[in-house]
Each structure stands twice: as structure tokens, then as C-alpha cells.
Design a protein around this nucleic acid. Structure first.
Lengths: 181, 181
DNA sequence: ATTTGCATGTAAAATGTTACATGATTGC
DNA sequence: GCAATCATGTAACATTTTACATGCAAAT
């Protein structure tokens, strides 16, 4: 079976420690959501497929509240597959920004709408920056300074730098639109 | 028929003037490729669908070299649909950066690979910045200063600002990796 | 002769999201 | 009682890329 990017994302998040499909989704939403996302509809079927391939192994544990939890952990083969993928060249995703597309194809009558979109975008970016700042202080407390810590810190830096650049652009764009009267 | 994002991209590029599927692809590659992309496998079938809906109308013209060109132009209804879409709130695409994912899930043994990826990424960004600079001087010559010009100029600004921020980050990340020895 | 650019299109495969379905427990 | 969180999963739908197929003309 050829693995997809989602599979590697799942394997990678399991390297942080064993977890259920639900846990994986939580980890995504709490730490990598600003550059990676997966839905349940992707996670659950893929965990089964990965188990069939022997890249993860699952075991059933009773959950704190009655139900059954399927907790998966990375196997040695899974870790190997993951490391091999990391070695491979990065495949760049074709970019798609709906906001920029609208800017590009709009005419005069659409200016008020564009202004609304830019204001909303700036708002979202400020929220993202606040979130990043919160994460920043959170991880600064437990600063181990090891490799994994440095790498995750770098992804956060990316989020902060690009969000700041985008925010500055959005503000610049709003000014420019204002000058068109 | 519910229109998809690709449809609006096609309609938008036809607003620049009538053109064939081939022309549309050229326009994309030459001006919006850094924030939007479509493949032929998308463009040709969609043009037919859009014509069936009366949003574009096609006519066959002989091409300079023998064959037949299908040249499409925007209809009044097509322009209306396009403007209505621009009014709607922007739907943010869930981000996916393979590079950052690899950073996040990598361990010590992957550091040389990460360095390679970052170097390649920095190279790509420098090429993109050069391309932007070239476009910049190109459009500065014919500076009409009207609305459409300002808006396209803003998308270019976005490309330049974010590419610069990403490049600065990549260089920072390479330094940080170097310090891990 | 062969590569490059112009030009159009289809079919299959890959990939992914959304909606639906179900059910327990905890805190308000 | 009700909302939120925990927890798992399927099916349908939507979307898109890739590979394939074809052919002419101009330039090298």
C-alpha cells in the first residue's frame, strides 16, 4: 500500500505517544492546526489501514467513562516508514488563496466586499497571533532545549512570522483600498 | 448547478478578455500561479459545464496553425455570478505544509534531511522573489493607477511580503539547526 | 528527424470533507 | 433535563490531479 500524506501525519503524531483517533485529532487541533489538518473521516479509516500494514498496533482499553478506547501506538516498522518519508524531498502543494483570487478578479463595484474580507482576515490573523503568543509562553516554561523542542519551536516561529507579514499586508491593502475612495 | 471555486477562477480569468482553455492556463501560469492553480483536466470540462449554464459562450475560430480554437467569453450572467461570489465571505482553506509537518515530527537522525529541505525551500523562495521583482518592474511601466491595477498590484505585494517572511524564517531555521551541531 | 509549443480532451485514481449515526458521561 | 465532551465510525459527495490520447506546425 502506498501511504498518503495523511498517513504520515498520523504516524508522526503517534510518535508523541500512543493515542486514539480522537487523541490524534486533539493533538492536531492543539498544536499543528495552523499548518496541518485532518478530519475524523480521514483519521479513523487510515488508522485501520495502517494497522493492517503493521505500521501501528492498536489495543482496546476501557475509557474513563464507560466506552472502549482504541489506543494505537507506533510500531518499529511505522517509525521506519516515517523517517524514510521525512528524508524524501518535500512536495510543494499548489497554493490556493480564495482571498487573493477575489482581489485579482474583482472590479470597482466589489470594493466594499473586498474591504469586508480584508477586515475579517486581519481579525483572524490577530487571533492566530494571540494563540501563537500563548503557545509561546506555554512552551517557554518547560524549555528543555533539545532537538524536538527546537524543531517545534521553529514551526511556531514560522506561524508567527508569516501571520505578522500577512497582517501587515492586510493593513497595507486596506489603506490602499481607502485611497481609491 | 452549484459552481465550484475552479469555476469562479475560470470566469474571473475570462473577465480579462475572451480566451481558450489553453489561454486560461497560460494566464494562470503567468500571473496568479503563486496563489492559484488549475489543471487542464479541470479547465476543459468546466468550460463545457459553464457554457451549458450560459455563464460563458464559446465560439470556434481557426487557430494560426491549422487547428480549431475554442474561444470562450464571459456572458452577462457569468459576470453577475462572478460578482455575487466575490461578495460572499471568503472560505479559508485548511492549511497543509508538508515542510512544517516534517519539521514537527522529525527526530535527531533526520536533521540532515531537514537541512536539505530548508535549503531547497530557500532556493525556491529566492526564485519566486526574483519572479515577483520582474513582474513588478513589468507592471510599473504601464502604471494606469486604476482600480484593477491597484488590486493586482496588491496580490503581488502579498506574494513579495510573504515570500520574504518565509525566506527570513528559512534562514533563521537553518541557523538554529546549525547550532544543534 | 525531433523537440517544443499550440491545442483539446477523457478516464481513472487519489484525496479529502461533510453529513450522518450512535452512545456514554460529566457538569451545569 | 441539557449541553458539552468523549468516542468511534461509515457513506456519500466533492474535488482535483495524473496519466493517457491525439495531432498539427514551427523551429532546430
Amino acid at each position: 500500500m502506498k501511504l498518503r500524506r495523511s498517513d504520515y501525519a498520523i504516524l508522526g503524531l503517534l510518535r508523541l505517544g500512543p493515542g486514539s483517533g480522537y487523541d490524534i485529532k486533539q493533538r492536531i487541533d492543539r498544536s499543528v492546526a495552523f499548518f496541518w489538518n485532518e478530519s475524523y473521516g480521514q483519521i479513523y479509516p487510515r488508522l485501520k489501514a495502517l494497522e493492517a500494514e503493521g505500521l501501528v498496533k492498536g489495543r482496546e482499553t476501557p475509557s474513563a467513562r464507560g466506552g472502549v478506547r482504541h489506543v494505537y501506538s507506533l510500531t518499529r516498522r511505522g517509525a521506519k516508514a516515517l523517517d524514510a518519508w521525512i528524508e524524501e524531498p518535500v512536495v510543494p502543494a499548489p497554493p490556493r488563496s480564495e482571498l487573493l483570487l477575489k482581489l485579482f478578479i474583482a472590479g470597482e463595484p466589489s470594493l466594499p466586499a473586498l474591504e469586508r474580507h480584508l477586515v475579517a482576515h486581519a481579525r483572524d490573523l490577530r487571533a492566530e497571533l494571540q494563540q501563537h503568543a500563548a503557545t509561546h509562553t506555554l512552551i517557554s516554561d518547560t524549555e528543555p532545549g533539545d532537538v524536538a523542542w527546537t524543531l517545534r519551536r521553529l514551526t511556531l516561529d514560522f506561524g508567527e512570522r508569516t501571520a505578522r507579514a500577512e497582517l501587515a499586508w492586510a493593513e497595507h491593502a486596506l489603506e490602499a483600498l481607502g485611497e481609491l475612495t
